[in-house]
Every structure is written in structure tokens, then in C-alpha cells.
Design a protein around this nucleic acid. Structure first.
Lengths: 351, 351
DNA sequence: CTGTTAGCGCGTTCAT
DNA sequence: ATGAACGCGCTAACAG
């Protein structure tokens, strides 16, 4: 007999000997304690007036039976769900399995920030189909609010919904024409940082790797180009690539194989930059000797790249806190303004 | 006037003319349709017998009003929550902010697999304190089942709970003395793969980097050592390190700085292996010339490392599917057996 | 084929 | 200070 079976035997025995131990609701507990359900409710929630000693007595009975209020029922009664959804619209990257460490870090910090405020985090990946996905999700009523990571190519959908659904904030690019409230980095400024850095290093033959149909990436690109002297900016090579490791590696490899030899590359994310480093190494291109590479995000492994990656750093923890803060304030009916954080450049050996 | 404004006008107009348009419950909808609530319920859930044309009529009214069943209430009534918790016990890594891409990939696949089965994914990071964290979480009743990623140092807690709480599965190391049901890789076999590979490459002075208080890592270590000829195995250098990028980089750097010069290193995860590569590069140690490095996991960026990382591959997608599958079967009352998948070795240039 | 009724587990007036 | 009664939005017998 294995250990689990042993436990079962023990358990059913104790069940039998205690006659009725299954306390599944405050009604059961009320019966045991010899009080009314409302008294139990008051005791366990700490709300409402109640004699201290009654409260303690009921508390200890509850503890003794391992009883906890059913949060689902509590939420139903309170007209809330106690959960916030984190949505990752993957409109531009069908095959992307949350593979970007940036998402990962953001998710972790969001989980922390939401837990601090007493909310659960409901994770949902959505593959946007048509215009209805967001409304449909919201009408499901599973959550009290929505945090969307990245506009993807769905800005229109987000705006349409934001007009009548308050509890929603978006991590992404700010744009004054946006109806939806954003938290994000100043991507243009980040692009400019990369541009000045490469220019100062004497780099003149530049390329940008990324997918400019995504608003944030477009801003990085334009910030990059606009911060360069006009003739240099005009000659920047825009290399379009999806941002998964696989896709970007293929693009970079093909790019070098075709004989392209820029002396500076600004990649729209660290993942893409790592692919560039890898493809360059394969082609015998020396980094930073022949080529300087700058990424974006400063994901944890950026400094462990070979060579360590120069990158534009986003403060993900602060971003997560801001997202939660703004969301809760919108849920409380406040009017809030978008938040745009200034990124830093972290100079390492890849440039 | 944009479309949204048009809708509002139309909407408020119909509000006025319909007297009460806020349809927030099936009761409202029943009133509008002139039927009973149960008819609406049957129409919208598709359960129970109902005249096809009645069903269609109610459906279209619901659609017209953008009405959807309140899932929270539905779940309360059905005695379920419709959500599965994914718990990351970080007992051995306080500072770890979900930074490991392996977790991320797992999370993504779990989100997919659960969504396929109609469940939401509730993400929760737990910093185990004492023995009560798991029971307390479960008694909260927020979820129908629990998936735990990694045993961390909490095997005892998991076993205690598994004895009386069926809907729980664990990603981690299998052990016949475990009461909890595990899904995972054959970590011993993985370690053996690494050992044979390094040995075949002529490597004799070997080291293992990892934290053997974590069961999975201990199995990798022992599988590694045991697959080597006794005298080689006995001389394997066990280098203890936490598995975050930062911590492992420091450990690796200090290790090389102290003059240690193994010719083969097996790292307990790819993240640790990347740190080893980075520290080696810094010390001018040539990989794979002087040193072969083998990781574990095959995270997406492993192949973009410099040099590309040889690693023991785990099929994360299959693992996620198995976790969900076993969990649902346990929830259905079935007896299930642990699943242990055989990992592969992916040979790249780092060895 | 459809309506009536009784809860799921809880919080909250309104009484006492 | 405590209890009784009602309802959050929904489903599932049981009637008819």
C-alpha cells in the first residue's frame, strides 16, 4: 500500500470519528458555533461591529476546521471578481510563445504588484481575430480590469473599447490620438540614445532590425533615424523582421549572407540583437571590431551575451507598478494620464 | 462623427425608447424576450431541450444587447471556479523574478493547454513561509486545481497536501516516495547524456554547476556523476550556485578567477550555462577549445549563445500538455501515474 | 417545450 | 451585539 492510500485510510477514519467535519460554508460554521451566519460573516471579514470575544471564538473554530471564506461567492456578492486579466495580443507574432524574456519579467512584476493590492492575475494569450476579441473577453465578466501588454497591431480595437470601458490600461507606445491609457517607455528617446551612441562611436553605415508595424518599434525606429544627421539618417537600412529568436536569426543570417556590411545595428529588442550577434559571429564579423550592436530592453541575459550587449534599458518593475497603479485608479473612477518613462543606455562590449 | 459616437447616439436613443436597456442578467433578457429565466439559460448554454427557433431568437436578442452570461455566477452555481492556478514556489530563490525563460515557455504552453480545455490560468508566485502556504491557498477556493512548477525545497509540503487534495500536479523530479503526482523529465538520464557527451569528447576534469537542494537539480547531478567512470565521477567538482543569471555569473567568475580550470562543465540549466560561457569568455578561456559547456532546458536563446550552447533538451510543450491532462484526469477522479519524459541532447558548438 | 422554485456561499440592510 | 431575510446571477430539478 502506498503512502497516499495510507493517508486515505487515516483520513476516512478521522472523518467517521468526527461525525461531521465537512464545514464548507459559513452556515456549517454557524451551526457548530451556535450563532447566525451573519455573525460568522462579520467575524471572518472583520467588518461590522461584533463582540471581540465572539469574534475570536469563531475565528478559532474556523481555524480548527481549516475553514476559509469562499472567495468566489464573496466576490459574486460584492459584485466583483477579484481578478485582473493580463492580455498578450499576439497579432503580429502568431508563433510567438511568450518567448520574449521581457514579457516574462513584466509578468513577474505584475504578479507581485497585483498580489500586493489583493488581486489575482488571470493570464490570457489572445490571438486577435477580427475586432471582437477584446469586447468578448470583457463581457465575459471574468475580471475587474484588464492590462494589455503591447498594442501589437490592435490599436484600433483598443481605442474602440477604451472609449466605454474604463478599467483598462495598456503597456505600449504613447500617442496623443490614442483613447486608451498607456504606460511605457519613451521609445523615440530610446531610439535617439542608440543613434547618438553609435554615431559617437564613429558608426555611419547603420541598420535597424525590427517590425515597424508595431507602434513601439516604429517609435524606436523613427527616434533612431531622426536623431542622426539627415544624410546618415536617410541611409539607415530598415530590415524588417519578426521578433522571435528564430525569425530574427534567419533574417540576420540572410542579411549578412547577402553581403550587407553595416558598421552599426540597432535592434528593436534584445532578443533580436542576440540573433544579430549570433549571425555576425557565424559570418566571422567581429563585434565590436567591425560592427557595433545595440539592443533594447536590457533583459536579464543581455549582460551574459557574448560580447555583453549594449542596450537601451527599460525599468520593467517600475512599469509594472505604474500599470497596476493607473488601472486601480481608473477602476476607482479617477482620470489618469499616460506614463512615459525615460529609458537609459547601458553600454557594454557589443558596441 | 466617428462610429463610436454614432453607436452611442443610437444606443441612448434605443435606451429611451426601450425604457430599460441595461441588460445585466438573464432576468433582464427574459423580460425583454418575454420568456422565463430558465429558457434564457437553456438558450444561451445550449443545454436542455428548447425549440430551435426560440433559442435562435433569444440568441439574437442577447447578441444585439452585447449580453454574455456572467461566468462568475455560472461557476458559483456549478460549484466550480473555472480557473486553474499555476504556482511558482520560490523557496530556493528569493530574488528570482520569474527570470528563467524556461518558466516563461512553460507558462505560455500551459496557458494554451488550459484555454483549450476551457480553463483560465491564475498565476501566483508564492514565497513559501512555513508549511501552511499551500493549504491556505487551496482553502481559499479560488481555483479548481493547482499546477505547481518545480518542487523547490517544498517536497514535504507538497506531499502533505497531495494526500488529501486530488486536483494537484507538480512539474519536477519524480520519486517513488513522493505522494504528489509529477510530470517532468528524466533528469538522471539527462545528466547521463551530458556525462557521456563530455566523456566522449575526451573531457576528464569535470564540474557541475547548480543547486542540489532542488530535487530536479540533484537528479541531474547524480545522473551525471553516476554515468561517468567511477574515478572520473568521484572527481567531479560540485559548484553550488543559485540559478539566477546574476548569482551564477558571480559564482562562475569567482570560480575561474580562483584558478579552477575544468575541461568540461555541466550546468543545471541553460541560464547557468550562459553565465559560465560569459565568465569563461571574460577570463580568456576558449570554448570549446579549452572547455566544453553543456546546459539543460534548451531555452529558445540557447542556440543564439556565443558559441551556440550544447544542451539537454526538455520538450516543454509536451510537458505542459501532460500537466494539464493529468490534472484534469485527477479532477475527474481517475488514478494517474507520473509522467517522465526522456530528454535529448542537442549538440551545438559549445562542446 | 417552457415556467416555477430552490439553492450555490456569501454580505448587508433592518430588526430586535 | 446579534439574528432573520433577501439577493448577487446563474443552473437544475420538478411541474405542467
Amino acid at each position: 500500500m502506498n503512502r497516499e492510500a495510507l493517508w486515505r485510510v487515516f483520513f476516512s477514519h478521522s472523518l467517521a470519528s468526527m461525525e461531521e467535519d465537512q464545514v464548507k460554508s459559513i452556515a456549517d460554521l454557524a451551526r457548530i458555533a451556535g450563532v447566525s451566519v451573519s455573525t460568522v460573516s462579520r467575524a471572518l471579514t472583520g467588518k461590522g461591529a461584533l463582540a471581540a470575544k465572539t469574534r475570536e471564538r469563531i475565528q478559532s473554530i474556523a481555524d480548527g476546521h481549516g475553514f476559509r471564506l469562499n472567495i468566489a461567492a464573496q466576490n459574486l456578492r460584492l459584485g466583483r471578481t477579484g481578478a485582473i486579466a493580463v492580455l498578450l495580443p499576439l497579432g503580429h507574432e502568431r508563433g510567438q510563445h511568450l518567448s520574449d524574456p521581457f514579457f516574462m519579467a513584466m509578468l513577474g512584476f505584475l504578479a507581485d504588484a497585483l498580489a500586493d493590492k489583493g488581486y489575482d492575475l488571470l493570464l490570457s494569450r489572445v490571438l486577435p481575430e477580427g475586432d471582437g476579441w477584446l469586447d468578448a473577453f470583457i463581457r465575459g465578466g471574468r475580471v475587474d480590469g484588464v492590462i494589455i501588454i503591447g498594442q501589437s497591431d490592435q490599436s484600433g480595437v483598443l481605442d474602440r473599447t477604451a472609449g466605454r470601458y474604463a478599467p483598462m490600461v495598456v503597456w505600449g507606445e504613447r500617442n496623443d490620438s490614442h483613447v486608451h491609457v498607456t504606460v511605457g517607455s519613451d521609445n523615440r528617446a530610446g531610439g535617439a540614445l542608440a543613434a547618438r551612441h553609435l554615431f559617437d562611436r564613429g558608426r555611419r553605415k547603420l541598420a535597424f532590425f525590427g517590425n515597424v508595424t508595431v507602434p513601439e518599434f516604429a517609435a524606436r525606429y523613427h527616434g533612431f533615424v531622426d536623431a542622426l544627421p539627415p544624410e546618415i539618417g536617410a541611409s539607415v537600412d530598415l530590415v524588417t523582421t519578426r521578433i522571435t529568436p528564430d525569425a530574427s536569426l534567419h533574417v540576420a543570417a540572410a542579411y549578412f549572407a547577402a553581403g550587407n556590411r553595416p558598421d552599426g545595428i540597432f535592434a528593436t529588442s534584445d532578443v533580436v540583437a542576440l540573433s544579430v550577434l549570433s549571425a555576425a559571429a557565424e559570418q566571422g564579423i567581429s563585434v565590436p571590431g567591425d560592427l557595433s550592436v545595440v539592443g533594447f530592453d536590457d533583459i536579464p541575459i543581455a549582460r551574459f551575451a557574448n560580447p555583453p550587449l549594449t542596450t537601451i534599458r527599460q525599468d520593467i518593475a517600475a512599469g509594472a507598478r505604474n500599470l497596476v497603479d493607473l488601472l486601480l485608479r481608473r477602476m476607482a473612477g479617477e482620470d489618469v494620464s499616460p506614463v512615459q518613462a525615460m529609458p537609459d543606455i547601458i553600454v557594454r562590449e557589443s558596441s
